[in-house]
Nucleic acid binder design. Structure first.
Lengths: 201, 201
DNA sequence: CTTATTTGTTATCTTTTGTTAACGTTTTAA
DNA sequence: TTAAAACGTTAACAAAAGATAACAAATAAG
């Protein structure tokens, strides 16, 4: 995919948040970079400041943490979604999250420095503030749902919920990643699947 | 506490996000209301749209969900914190969360309508967008931590973490609320406390 | 002050989950 | 193509957590 097509896709996606006019788009797009991440390579790593946000044009990434030598998956992002170790990006402090490409992944990225420049550019400031607000609010809602699901649902209910939303995660992710994502072990998920299948019959 | 003192406290708190000049503050504060919530009364309820955000001047609230007739605590907010069923406020859709005053609580509130008016007022728009962005980003970071704790930590580790942060929750909340907050039952928390005490000796 | 209610702990029993290991299958890489 | 690694399921056992009930202590209400 060439960069102009990727840019067009990105611009279209951004319309859910904000509509740039031509002059604004030119200024904005000057701050964008294109990058490719080979499978298994890292977008962010534990202990490093993640100073950028990516938009996934093609591919998929996995967020995970290391604990006692074990790799625990926390989240996934796919095409047409943003990717970042948000807290690290927002605070400028080292992050705790690894973000790894699951496939060869193409990204459009901007750095925190780029964003700050745009926020300080009178031609863009208002729209960038608004853009930032709407994106943060969107992800806030996602996180709220996720926290509520951990508080109020059993792992089995979370799995059934994932099934019913017909989410891409189930299609594209191996089961042991999904298990962590649901807050359980792969063995547990396997048991839940058996139970669910038995009930469905 | 009189309203002018409450306003001053609120203004001071807002400085962590934004600094209003006098003219802006006058416009902004015109959109604020004062309200009191008696103990056990509700700020938000399941099935209703929560169309406002509150700032707690005095008191405390508890967020909870009902499931199978059981009351499950998800969060708390105290003095100098915001309170809202954020997703409902942001989307305008009915919320799933009950928010109840644990003590007689004094609030400064603004409605979604107020916020939209401010966002559309050229005198305030830029600062309100920025304010909204920074608040949303702040809570996004909180939620990120909370999700990571559910994915990577055991209930006992979450409890120890709560202990070490010396959080107000431990001081002011009864244990069965804290248990839910940690994602476990009160009985489980009691066992964890015993284990922790035994280890500490 | 007295009575209810709420709260926290403990015990018992059951269910769920984690851990480890084994096994066959699929996928990946050399 | 072949060897190695990754993946999903299952089994067996241990550990943890849930449900329930009983009881004592603290708190609130009358």
């Amino acid at each position: 995919m060439d960069t102009s097509k990727a840019l067009a896709i990105f611009r279209e996606h951004l319309k859910r948040y904000i509509d740039f006019n031509e002059a604004e788009w030119i200024l904005f797009s000057q701050h964008l970079s294109f990058s490719a991440l080979k499978k298994k390579h890292y977008f962010a790593e534990y202990g490093n400041v993640c100073d950028k946000v990516g938009f996934i044009v093609a591919g998929a990434v996995r967020y995970f943490h290391m604990k006692d030598g074990q790799d625990i998956t926390g989240y996934f992002s796919f095409e047409n979604e943003f990717v970042s170790s948000y807290k690290s990006y927002l605070t400028g402090l080292p992050g705790y999250t690894y973000i790894q490409a699951l496939e060869d992944t193409k990204l459009i990225t901007f750095t925190r420095k780029d964003m700050d420049e745009m926020l300080n550019n009178p031609m863009l400031a208002y729209k960038m503030e608004r853009f930032g607000r709407l994106v943060a609010e969107h992800y806030l809602c996602c996180y709220e749902d996720r926290v509520v699901s951990f508080i109020t649902q059993t792992p089995e209910e979370r799995y059934l919920n994932l099934l019913s939303t017909g989410c891409e995660i189930l299609q594209r992710m191996p089961q042991h990643y999904i298990a962590n994502f649901l807050g359980i072990t792969p063995v547990s998920l396997s048991r839940i699947r058996r139970r669910v299948l038995a009930t469905a019959k």
